[in-house]
Structures are given as structure tokens and as C-alpha cells.
């Protein structure tokens, strides 16, 4: 039943890309709402707002990345077909979970921080530097999760 192994890996990839992407989408959405509010009054802030709005977007990229690695691993992206046992597939599935979970929640949390920081630059444009660092603090945990996912994927021998 090697097909089940492959499918488990695909499920992992789907979760990584889907959940982390959702987190980013919600996060970017929250930040965007705040940004739209600021820009209604002060369209000149577009550049800064865009920068801060983009920050929660990285989780989606990390998720995509992990998903890509996962399906590459089981040979779905060209190359020769690889034998994947159910256990190996399950391993790939688990390896995808860190970024899927952490990506979802950190994306949302980062979006909220970004929104608050967008309000901060509306009030104090001179503090932009600090406003950019605060959301990056949240992202740390997405980065760590990504790292773990990659290391786990890497350590599964096929």
C-alpha cells in the first residue's frame, strides 16, 4: 500500500501550505484593515503601511516551502518514483505539522501586532524602526517551526 504513504505525505504538505497560508491571510487581512484605516486619512503612509502589512505574510511562504519540500521528498515533482512506506509517509506528515500549526497561529498573532504597529506609525512616524521590529519578534516562532519541519523532513530516510 505504498500509495497511502504518498498520500499521507501529500496531506502533510497540504496542511503546511493550507494552515500556514490561512494564518498569513488572516494576519495580512487584519494588518490591511488597520492600514486602510490609516490611509483613508493619510495616503502618504502607503509605503510604511505596505511594509508592515507584508510582515505577517511570511508564514504562508514558509508553509509553501515546507509543502514543496515534502512533495519533493516523495518524488511527486518529477524525477523517479520513490517507494514510500506508510510509516515513512506518516513521518513526512508529522514533519509538516510544526509549520502548519505555528504558521497558522503566529500569522494571526503577527497580524495583530502589525495592525497595532501600523497605528503606532500613524501617531509617531519617527518610530518606524521600532514598529517594524515588534512584529518580527512574533515571527521568530514561525521561523523556529519552519526550521524544525525542515530538519525533520531531512532526517526521514527514504
Amino acid at each position: 500500500m505504498e500509495i497511502l504513504g504518498v498520500m499521507l505525505a501529500v496531506l502533510g504538505a497540504a496542511l503546511a501550505a493550507g494552515l500556514a497560508g490561512s494564518g498569513s491571510a488572516i494576519g495580512v487581512g487584519i494588518a490591511g484593515e488597520a492600514g486602510a484605516g490609516i490611509m483613508t486619512e493619510d495616503p502618504g503612509k502607503f509605503g510604511l503601511v505596505l511594509l508592515l502589512q507584508a510582515l505577517p505574510g511570511t508564514q504562508g511562504i514558509y508553509g509553501l516551502l515546507t509543502a514543496f519540500f515534502a512533495i519533493l521528498k516523495v518524488g511527486l515533482l518529477g524525477g523517479e518514483a520513490i517507494e514510500v512506506s506508510v510509516w515513512q509517509g506518516l513521518g513526512v506528515f508529522f514533519a509538516c505539522l510544526p509549520i502548519a500549526i505555528a504558521g497558522y497561529y503566529s500569522g494571526i498573532a503577527q497580524g495583530k501586532t502589525s495592525a497595532a504597529c501600523i497605528q503606532l506609525i500613524a501617531k509617531r512616524p519617527e518610530e518606524t524602526g521600532k514598529a517594524v521590529i515588534l512584529p518580527a519578534m512574533v515571527e521568530t516562532y514561525a521561523v523556529l517551526a519552519l526550521l524544525m519541519s525542515i530538519i525533520l523532513l531531512n532526517s526521514i530516510k527514504l
Binding site: 511562504i61 514558509y62 509553501l64 516551502l65 514543496f68 519540500f69 523556529l144 519552519l146 526550521l147 525542515i150
Partner: peptide, 19 residues
């Protein structure tokens, strides 16, 4: 451990380019 982001971000860049 926080410095592991150096690896993660570097990998992310290469991987996105690869995609």
C-alpha cells in the same frame, strides 16, 4: 537557538527561488 533563523531564512530564499 534564535540564531537558527540564519539557516531557516537562508534556506527559505534558496527554496523559494527553486520553486
Amino acid at each position: 537557538l534564535s540564531y537558527s533563523r540564519l539557516l531557516a531564512l537562508g534556506l527559505a530564499t534558496s527554496a523559494i527561488a527553486m520553486i
